[in-house]
Amino acid sequence: MLQLPEIYAENLHRWLPELLYYSLTTLKIAAVSFFIAVVVGLLFALLRLSHNRLIRGFAVGFIEVARGLPIVVVLYIVYFVPPQLFPGLNWSWFTDFTGAVVGLGLHGAAILAEVFRSGIEALHKGQREAAISLGMTPAQSMAYIILPQATRIILPPVANYAIGLLKDTSLCSLIGVNELMNDAKSIAFADYQPMAVFVLVAVIYFAMSFPLSMAVRYMEGRLAVSR
């Protein structure tokens, strides 16, 4: 029978510092790809709402493809495909970390684009018309009138996406990024303690995502639009 408490008493002082060190990499991947997802997602949300049919079609195509692909496939495509399509270029800067954040970022952009769009569309059209009749340009009305109000609607789903993203960083281990999951694998198989190590890693992931999910619950209660 497996004696988890004894295994932890014996090994935790070696495992925990190393795993916590690699959790920082996990958080770094999550933070950078979150940033990419917000910026690119906002761009695609605006393209998606464009009056030009070609631009709109391009945005819809990107969103459907990126949302329809499994994240693992997105990571493999982003990381392995460009160097092979354009072998003449210099790809030495394109590390596994870069591939991971670009892959997760683009996938997230497609998810967030839909979140942003529904937030923007949920606002009454009159808000925009009023802003424009006051002499604002469409860009100004978007920046000062629509987006600040939409923030309230989109914040809970964006935070939910952040939780999902944090968990999805574990898939970066499959393209070889040295983050929490990859380090856990090497410890687990070097020390022949898969159960103890993977349970510990689950607890670490939980400790990172639980505060976020508490925050979502708080926001859902606090920011609920009262009518």
């Binding site: 574990s170 898939l171 687990a188």
Partner: peptide, 24 residues
């Protein structure tokens, strides 16, 4: 619900596939 939604599916798979042999 909180635990399974708060941890990556990959970790859960590894606990089951590589961890369960430890408990027979």
């Amino acid at each position: 619900i909180e635990f399974f939604r708060g941890t990556p599916a990959l970790v859960q798979l590894f606990v089951i596939y590589f961890g369960f042999p430890d408990i027979g």
